[in-house]
Lab assay of single mutants.
Amino acid sequence: LELTLRVGDKTWHFKDVDEEFVRHLEELLKRGAHEREIEEIIREWLR
C-alpha cells in the first residue's frame, strides 16, 4: 500500500505501508486525534 497523509501543514508519503498501521491511523482519525498524537505515531512507525 502507498499512503499520503496530510496533517496540519505537514505531508507524508509512505510506500509499502503495513495495513495494520493504516487501520491504526484510521482509528486515531475517527476519534479525533490531535495533530501531535498523529505525528508521534508516525515517528514511532518510522523507527
Rank of each mutant, 00 (worst) to 15 (best):
V22Y: 07
L28G: 04
R6V: 15
D16E: 11
K15C: 07
H24M: 13
E40K: 13
F14A: 00
H24I: 12
E44C: 06
E35I: 13
G32R: 03
A33F: 09
D18Q: 06
E27T: 12
A33L: 09
V17I: 09
L25T: 02
E27G: 11
K15H: 15
D9S: 05
D16P: 10
K10H: 13
D18V: 02
L29S: 05
K10A: 05
H24G: 11
E37W: 07
E37A: 08
E39I: 07
K30Q: 13
E19Q: 13
L1R: 08
L3A: 05
L1P: 15
A33C: 10
E35M: 07
L3K: 05
F14P: 00
G8A: 03
D16N: 14
H24D: 08
R36M: 14
H34I: 07
T4E: 14
I41M: 11
D18Y: 03
K30V: 11
L46S: 05
R47A: 14
L28P: 01
H13L: 05
V7M: 06
K10E: 06
G8S: 01
E40T: 11
L5Q: 01
L25Y: 02
V7K: 01
F21H: 03
I38V: 12
W12C: 03
R6Y: 03
E35V: 14
K30S: 10
G8V: 01
E19N: 07
L28T: 05
E35W: 13
I38T: 02
I41W: 14
K15E: 07
V22F: 05
E35F: 10
E26N: 10
L46F: 11
L25G: 00
D18E: 08
R31W: 08
I38N: 01
E27H: 11
L3E: 01
L3R: 08
E2W: 12
G32P: 04
L1G: 15
L25M: 09
H24L: 10
G32A: 06
E26F: 12
V22K: 03
E35C: 06
E35D: 10
E40R: 12
L5C: 05
V22W: 03
F21W: 07
F21T: 04
I42E: 01
L3N: 03
L3D: 01
A33Y: 11
K30P: 01
L46Y: 08
L5W: 01
L28K: 10
V22N: 01
L1D: 14
L3P: 02
A33G: 07
E44W: 06
W12M: 03
L46V: 10
R36D: 14
I41E: 07
E40S: 10
E37D: 13
K10G: 02
A33H: 09
E37H: 08
L46E: 10
L29C: 03
K15A: 08
E20F: 08
E39W: 06
D18P: 11
I41K: 12
K10T: 13
E37T: 07
H24N: 11
H24K: 13
E26W: 09
I38S: 01
D18I: 01
R6S: 14
L3S: 03
D18A: 08
L28M: 11
L28I: 07
H13V: 12
R31E: 09
F21I: 04
E20Y: 12
E19G: 12
E20L: 13
K30I: 09
L29D: 02
R47H: 13
I42A: 02
G8N: 05
T11R: 02
K30W: 09
W12T: 00
R31Q: 14
L25W: 02
I42V: 06
D18L: 02
E19R: 14
H34T: 14
D16G: 11
V22Q: 02
V7Q: 01
A33R: 07
T11S: 05
E37N: 06
I42M: 03
R43S: 10
E19W: 15
R6E: 11
E37G: 03
I38K: 01
V17G: 15
L29F: 07
E39D: 10
K15G: 04
T11D: 07
L25C: 08
